[in-house]
Design a protein around this nucleic acid. Sequence first.
DNA 1: TGTATAACCGAACAATGTTAATTTAGGCAT
DNA 2: ATGCCTAAATTAACATTGTTCGGTTATACA
Lengths: 234, 234
Amino acid sequence: MDKICAVIKHAVHRRLPPQQRREQIISEAKKLFAEQGVASVTMRSLGRRCGITQASIYQHFADKDAILFAICDAYFTLMVEEFRKTAENEPDPLQKLLAIMRTYMELGLSHPEEYRLTFMTSVSGIMQDHETAGHAAPDQAKAGSIAFNFLQERISGLMASGHLRHGNSAATAEAIWAAGHGLVSLLITHTRYTWSDIEAVKEAHLGLILHGLLTREAALALATASVQNSGKAL
Amino acid sequence: MDKICAVIKHAVHRRLPPQQRREQIISEAKKLFAEQGVASVTMRSLGRRCGITQASIYQHFADKDAILFAICDAYFTLMVEEFRKTAENEPDPLQKLLAIMRTYMELGLSHPEEYRLTFMTSVSGIMQDHETAGHAAPDQAKAGSIAFNFLQERISGLMASGHLRHGNSAATAEAIWAAGHGLVSLLITHTRYTWSDIEAVKEAHLGLILHGLLTREAALALATASVQNSGKAL
DNA sequence: TGTATAACCGAACAATGTTAATTTAGGCAT
DNA sequence: ATGCCTAAATTAACATTGTTCGGTTATACA
């Protein structure tokens, strides 16, 4: 009995090494955000969840924004990781682009709060060179740029091979990103809006992007191919 | 001298009829949002700007959200109005759709804070039936729906006339909206991100949407027409 | 000119992010 | 084991936020 109490007390007042506590805070913050939304998560509630006081958090993070930033960073690396996986599993370059777009959307829709944080609020400068003065590791420093370059490379490749209409590949990549982002952000924000049918909208959206990019020949080829395959045409 | 002081004092302590003060608060709030961003505008600063105390605001608005809501409402009606105007000025149905999309984007980019408020945050239920219990006038009640229906009507019309690929017109309208929204919201949020060239991205985006919608025949017709006209092809 | 309505103010409330001074857990040398 | 010393965590406060309540007083109207 004494032992148990000792253990419990020990567990409650346990001091953690900084890195471990840091990860715990981020992890709990993610969960709380998903449960209650970013706005209503306070330093106090976050501290309580971690078994420490709100003031203790400031030993691990400069301020609240630093926590948000760390979460964005984690989301970016997760996204790049998922991109890599889907790219590996899909040999056809055109289908690969579509698959990546799907991954982008699915990931965003399944991590709404993190997505909102990363792409819908301007948490310092995540998208560019991370001017955090050596605060973050250099390999994660341009996570946003890495993810975006990944997209742009596919596109310039597809342009070169004649699948896509010619044009400024950077601008096109940004336009595609914007299109995908649009649907995700709308679905996330206006949850209660009566969408006609989410799956239908998603497919309509992908179809819009795809046909917006293809050359006439590629579109024709794709149409005949998809009819032969499954009849499920985009 | 006495007179002047009296006038000034009178001006400072002037009481306004409710509706007038209400409009003043909304107007000043819009300006402050544009200057400092929504987050850092407090009830106190807003009150100061209007020449009254923060407490007085609560006689005109239930809470801060009510002010935000009113601004969203105003933005919606402005948007519908702009839609009407551009629709009038453009006879060709296809060009009309493009023009409307352009208006949507331009308006959003020139009213970033109001746009962010209206489409990027979930301020109660703006998009649906305004469950504000008779708090707003009935003709403004479904401003969001009105704007959206406006878009959907053009699209189903263009589908019927064979300009656009067939499909669920509601889902397509939502997809288009999402695509347009994507660019606006990204440009608004990531101001400091080094875009390749904003005008190029905008045109690439409109081109993406357009070609994503058109039937092959319509695309061909448009291509030849635009070459004959100005050479400025989308 | 007097009166009553309601627009406005002053002062306070609880909750938020943040900081400083203090306490104390827990690894390390002895 | 024992004692020390670093630093993780706490306690107590700060300023600022949105919001409320009871009293003041401008101002329209009789």
